[in-house]
Design a protein around this nucleic acid. Sequence first.
DNA 1: AAAAATTGTGCAATCGATTGTACAATTTTC
DNA 2: GAAAATTGTACAATCGATTGCACAATTTTT
Lengths: 355, 355
Amino acid sequence: MQPRKTTIHDIAIRLSLSASTVSRALNNSPRISLKTREKVRNAAAELNYKPNHLAMNLRKGKGTTIGVIVPRLNRHFFSHAISGIESVINPTNYNLMICQTNEDYETEVKGLQSFVNHRLDGIIMSIATGTKKTGHIEYVVKEGIPLVLFDRMMGKISVDQVFNDNFAGSYDMTKHLIEQGYRKIIYFSGPLHLELYTDRYNGYRKALADSSIGFENEWLFTDVLTQSRGEEVAKILIKSDNIPDAIFAASDFSALGALLVFKNAGYAIPGQIGIAGFANEPFTGLISPAMTTLEQYSEELGRSAARMLIERMEFTTGLGAPNFVVVKPKLIVRGSTLRVPAGKERNEELISETV
Amino acid sequence: MQPRKTTIHDIAIRLSLSASTVSRALNNSPRISLKTREKVRNAAAELNYKPNHLAMNLRKGKGTTIGVIVPRLNRHFFSHAISGIESVINPTNYNLMICQTNEDYETEVKGLQSFVNHRLDGIIMSIATGTKKTGHIEYVVKEGIPLVLFDRMMGKISVDQVFNDNFAGSYDMTKHLIEQGYRKIIYFSGPLHLELYTDRYNGYRKALADSSIGFENEWLFTDVLTQSRGEEVAKILIKSDNIPDAIFAASDFSALGALLVFKNAGYAIPGQIGIAGFANEPFTGLISPAMTTLEQYSEELGRSAARMLIERMEFTTGLGAPNFVVVKPKLIVRGSTLRVPAGKERNEELISETV
DNA sequence: AAAAATTGTGCAATCGATTGTACAATTTTC
DNA sequence: GAAAATTGTACAATCGATTGCACAATTTTT
């Protein structure tokens, strides 16, 4: 345990130079002779000098840390998005500070505030489902801190955003279900105050309408995103003897809950009921029947978000119009909705690599 | 976009006070009258004052950020450990900075260095499998930065550590397999330079020895941790017609790979071959047959690590002897090793809640 | 009522690095 | 060889908040 870390002053004293010369030498200023620069570098190495980023950032008025706020780290979608962000950020001088909100509004506000206090240079965030107000985000934007919103978009705010074409993905999935002969298609939605979920819902409705299938209000269940909620609703459906042709869930997890309950209750999937999710979580390829879902290209979303943020931070002067990147999800058809002749197992060949 | 953020000086000018008085007032110093404190607080709120943590930390010589380094965020084990850490850290004034190494040594060194440069106040880390040297860790300890090692322990280093009793977990699992009648039990290990994996391996060997089962060298496969490696090895076993009674993998993922390959090749699990993993990843309860594995209580490990770190940071003066917390993994028996009478499906009742 | 104790506030140094400006030393120019 | 241009380095202010010490104002003690 060293009593004090070495500073540029220590180097300066050692070499009988001034601190400013040392600073310039370490920053390769052309005003310092090559010989001196060399000497300073050697002395710095000998004394095990490590620059104090706090002091640097304070003086420069800017740092090198980017904050990332996600609802949950243990979601395939988000952890891969973070990998994407890292792949762009790591080669730069920036560092990543990650915070998870557990889908909670208060935690989100607190995390964002902490980022502002720490004078982070940029923020990439995905809004919690519990968030209904946007004041905290607008505040950050007003403060002039570059911000990119990601996955959970927010049409009202004028800020860079990266997200999936949820409408299109949902539309494609619904069309697929219809093609497979399903008609009465129940929909498990997330909270409809999030555009993400209204878009998905609207895609579903549009596909039904385009196929002249009359939607009925009781087909919609909101706030069904978790496995346990999926199980609950599935049990309700069974109990009320109100068995749909298919269930399309805006979340793989609630789709999983439903799938397990129906399977356990003896229903043939996809024969009697088809089940589809959204996100292509790894488990969807492992269960049986393997689940039809939508791939969201999370790493690519993360990379785009990071690229946009760096663009904002380094090249854009002032605000300028917000940019948008939209990625279309890909339909992944698996056994849970594919009505093939007999009970032919086909999930193995569709296993997705998890590691 | 404000031109400049308000500082305590701005507040001081506004109230015709000095910056020091403002600082003291905001910190609730008893040397400042209550009336003044009140006035200062109001003015601060009006001017939308946000303390600059950079300056604060610089002056105080310490900050409020704790760094966490994990090999992978998208592992159930680590993301839940982080949740555990958060549950302890969030109620305090500390913030979390998270970094993932992707099991790579270089990335680990770089991340750790960045933490040191940013003068983080404490570090919780889990060593990458790619890490064979420990100089970078010893360096941090010598610098006097509180550090807690977690999950991947390192006996050589004198530092606080939190980890599973891998030997006991492995021993229990092997005993279970033997009780189920399996004899020729192949073992998929991780890299044996990590104590984590030697401990698991030794637990397995001890259990075999205690049951007087002769171990043979070709039963051991090292560096089989991923799904794809598990698949590879399983295919090799099948091709060489060297079918074991059971496979015990030090990773759920390689166990999964083997399970899928054997299942696909028409082997009855657990009838002809038993398969067990380690970690209780969520998918283990979802596949069929559901997989026997070991629960590691990751959240509890995370909480312990965080508590130990805070203890170090706030209460311990100097170094003192390192503390250890050891958590015993729990055997989770499921269909992949349980030889029940007929092909009775029993995985549903053992599904673990994923959300 | 003078001395002592208490209370409230300000001054100035400090944390570690950066940077505009000034100045001395050296080299170039005429 | 003196003046001008160039080069290398130092001084001091600065970023924003904290804190030891000093000092003035007020209250208490005797």
